[in-house]
Simulated scan of single mutants.
Amino acid sequence: MRSALEGIVVLDHTSALAGPYCAQLLGDFGANVIKIEQPGKGDQSRGWGPPFVGDVSAYYLGTNRNKRGLTLNLGSQDGRDIMAKLLKKADVLIHNVPRKSSRQKLGLDEKYCHGLNEKLIWASISGFGNTGPYAEKPGYDVIAQGMGGAMSLTGEKDSDPMRFPTPIADITTGIYTALSIVTALYARTHTGKGQSIDNALFDCQVTWLANVASSYLATNNPPQKIGNTHPSIVPYQPLPTADGWVIVGVGSEKLWQSFLQVINFSEIAEDKRFENNTLRLQHRQELTELLAKCLRQQNSAYWLEKLQQARIPSGPIYTPQETLSDEHLLSRGMVVELEHPMIGLVKSLGNPMNLTDTPVSYRLPPPLLGEHSTDILRELEYNEQQINELRDQKVI
């Protein structure tokens, strides 16, 4: 099958997570992604460990498949000349250089790049974007999480601010930027021209407020921490059993009636305080205590079987290792195996987007530092002597 982005050339001049994750998504759909790194150093995430697999961090391995690796010293004129040749042929440049002066010095600024190639999609990822009072302010995922509002709401009522355990600002920005790029590529089919993308971790993290933001903007009532519960639905939360936990989502009155039949607990079924969702919200604590008393009479497997027979949204609460060995997840191709030239079989999370005619493909393991430099320079019509000279001069 033809890949959706076959023939699209993407220059990935990013490090850490948001940019590499974005470029990996594009690579999964067939784009020719060239990962450009500084000679001798490379992506900072190469050193983010333990754990390491051989000499490579697991962090780096998780976000850099389906790319070819080129080392390039953009501090040198020869390096900038090579980059200019790449830009003339590329469809997309993704970078995460936050300062305009630095972009100009490296030959990555918007005006210069579009001067070389008016069809280029120029995608900038930064902490706070290229406009506004915080433009060029440095930022990592954890800063965006803190300023994005969700950290102050995560956890139980009296707990300290809590970071989400994975870098959700980076991941979200990577997804939004990939979507922006695909949108810009589609727009180019009509206009014949590229455009610029300016995505910020802060902006993208704020989108996680979603219904919380909508409620606040509608009422001006400050949102409060509610732990594992839902602000508008009860019960919609983890509940304790005799040997662990189950999680349920009773999102309608029809489901509530089915739920009552499953638990068969008269103290709840006959209590007028729980007749409808509005009343259940008013008496959340009392209902939760009674549900815990009921469900602790049987183990999790018992309740899950009953709940699923009644088609009530429910499930176990997995550890990551249980998640990554779940038979359904594995059947959906969500754990990918690729053979790496130095460290053998490398596993990573799969791409969750499933298209019938242009599916994702997994072709290349994460590249070694500069692994494909020679091949890429040959494609730019450099000869062997020139390539050797560039390597001797530490341009590549």
Rank of each mutant, 00 (worst) to 15 (best):
S3D: 10
A4D: 03
A4Q: 07
E6Q: 14
I8Y: 01
V9P: 12
H13W: 13
Y21D: 01
C22E: 04
G27D: 04
F29V: 02
Q38Y: 07
Q38M: 14
G40I: 00
D43R: 13
G49V: 03
P50A: 09
P51V: 13
F52T: 12
S57H: 09
T63K: 11
N64W: 08
R65N: 08
R65P: 07
L70N: 09
T71H: 09
S76L: 13
Q77G: 11
A84L: 05
D91M: 02
D91K: 03
V92F: 00
I94R: 00
H95P: 01
V97A: 11
P98K: 00
Q104D: 10
Q104F: 05
E110P: 07
K111V: 14
N117P: 10
N117R: 03
W122P: 06
S124K: 09
I125G: 01
G129F: 02
P133W: 00
P133K: 04
Y134H: 13
E136M: 04
K137I: 06
G139S: 10
V142L: 10
I143L: 14
A144S: 15
Q145G: 05
T154V: 08
T154A: 11
K157T: 15
P161F: 07
M162R: 12
I168D: 03
I175F: 10
L179R: 05
A187K: 14
R188W: 06
D198C: 03
L201C: 12
C204T: 14
T207C: 06
W208K: 08
N211I: 12
A213I: 01
S215C: 10
N220F: 07
T229S: 15
I233Q: 13
P238W: 00
T241Y: 02
A242N: 11
A242D: 09
D243G: 08
D243A: 09
G244R: 09
G244C: 04
I247V: 14
V250D: 14
L255S: 10
Q257D: 13
L260N: 13
N264M: 00
N264G: 02
F265H: 13
F274K: 01
N276I: 00
R280G: 08
Q285F: 02
E286G: 03
K293Q: 13
K293N: 12
Q297W: 04
Q297E: 15
Q298I: 01
N299F: 05
W303E: 10
L304A: 04
R311Y: 13
G315C: 04
G315D: 04
P316H: 11
P316D: 12
Y318N: 15
L324C: 03
L330I: 05
V336E: 11
P341Q: 11
V346R: 01
G350V: 01
N354Y: 11
L355R: 07
T358Q: 08
V360D: 06
P365E: 11
L377Q: 06
E381S: 14
Y382S: 13
